[in-house]
Design a binder for these strands. Sequence first.
DNA 1: CTAAATATTTACAACTTCTTTATAAGAATC
DNA 2: GATTCTTATAAAGAAGTTGTAAATATTTAG
Lengths: 225, 225
Amino acid sequence: MNKEEILIIDDEPQIRKLLEINLESQGYKVKQAETATMGLQLAANHPPDLILLDIGLPDINGQDLLVELKNWYNQSIIIISVLDNEEEIVRALDNGASDYITKPFRTNELLARIRACLNRNRIEDNKTVLTSTDLQIDLLARTVTRDNENVKLTLTEYKLLVLFAKNEGRVLTHQFILKEIWGVGFQTDTQYLRVFVGTLRKKIEQNPNKPVHIITESGVGYRFI
Amino acid sequence: MNKEEILIIDDEPQIRKLLEINLESQGYKVKQAETATMGLQLAANHPPDLILLDIGLPDINGQDLLVELKNWYNQSIIIISVLDNEEEIVRALDNGASDYITKPFRTNELLARIRACLNRNRIEDNKTVLTSTDLQIDLLARTVTRDNENVKLTLTEYKLLVLFAKNEGRVLTHQFILKEIWGVGFQTDTQYLRVFVGTLRKKIEQNPNKPVHIITESGVGYRFI
DNA sequence: CTAAATATTTACAACTTCTTTATAAGAATC
DNA sequence: GATTCTTATAAAGAAGTTGTAAATATTTAG
């Protein structure tokens, strides 16, 4: 197998060095960027398998960079943040970060996270069919079947279902879903989401009044099972 | 492993001697300070792994010293106080002390507390999954399971549980919890807390009448185990 | 260009969660 | 052991969130 490539975007040289040594010893290929601009460039030139992004960069707001990257980069981004900035971490996760780690971190912990993310990517990338007990989503054919019956979904409904299925078991916040499906700027239109969750439930749930797949997490978002 | 260092700040020589003997016999390295000034100095020079602070010092108010230390020292501080100065203990915990013990104390009790604190320090703040025997909290997925069964928590219940779990073993005062969950200005609404601790117990305890996870510390707050 | 399909918006009903009050149960103190 | 203080529980009301239907707008396909 080819060496997996990891891009580090961090302005602190010591941290980059520390990460470089550890990651290379694990057999990863490492690229480094000191600034957001440079990071974007490197990532665009030759997309890495994973990005480690320090959210507290000097030249640009890390959250903005994250949003920018997420526009086209669909592998994992793990953000590095200083401790005690819960709010920033939550925001980063909303913006599509896969995981986070706070400084100072233990290398073993970080390596475990990286392995987990890369694993997840490998699975997600290769899977063209997502299945659960009664549902089946074929990503290539763009078809959904329930109990072997074809289910007709509109584009938005389909996108929503795929997003749910790819994040099975995880609570997705309204904000996150809105951003993923409708794009940045629609984060307050939670009513869209309600309508579409409603129609989706009618199509994929046995009993739309007692949903078993799309679970409401009041005040937070939805969870797909 | 290196010897762990404990700094004792206490004006009574007998107590210092007693602690020194006991702690050294457990393999800790012990430093002593007779006054607050000296304690601060020693701590700043070479930060110990844990501080034992007698809150009733002669030269400075112990609470002030605690606040001072907490500004930059982020390991555990265990305070020693005379019995029946509940108010002072509560104030110290509010000020960020990790635990307390009242004079006269049993050495075994103190040693246990010290071990617990040092352990907690070692635990990374980075964990995205918090586990105990029967409970499991996944911070990324925002899910809680008990004996592998999913537990459905409301937003506030979840926040409360996470706060408890992140401060496992530590006494959290009512004030502190109220401030963390509801924000500044709710510190007097202890009734909220009672209600929510009640519902949480119903959901996570085997027997809510005999809670083993959320322990009441009468007059002070709660302790999560 | 028109009809059909899909998306957005509005209005309101249904439901969940939070707050408050009342009261019971339990501890601590005298 | 009675009194007082603290904590627990239940339940009602208020506030906030979510769900549904239907009207309107927009897009798509023929």
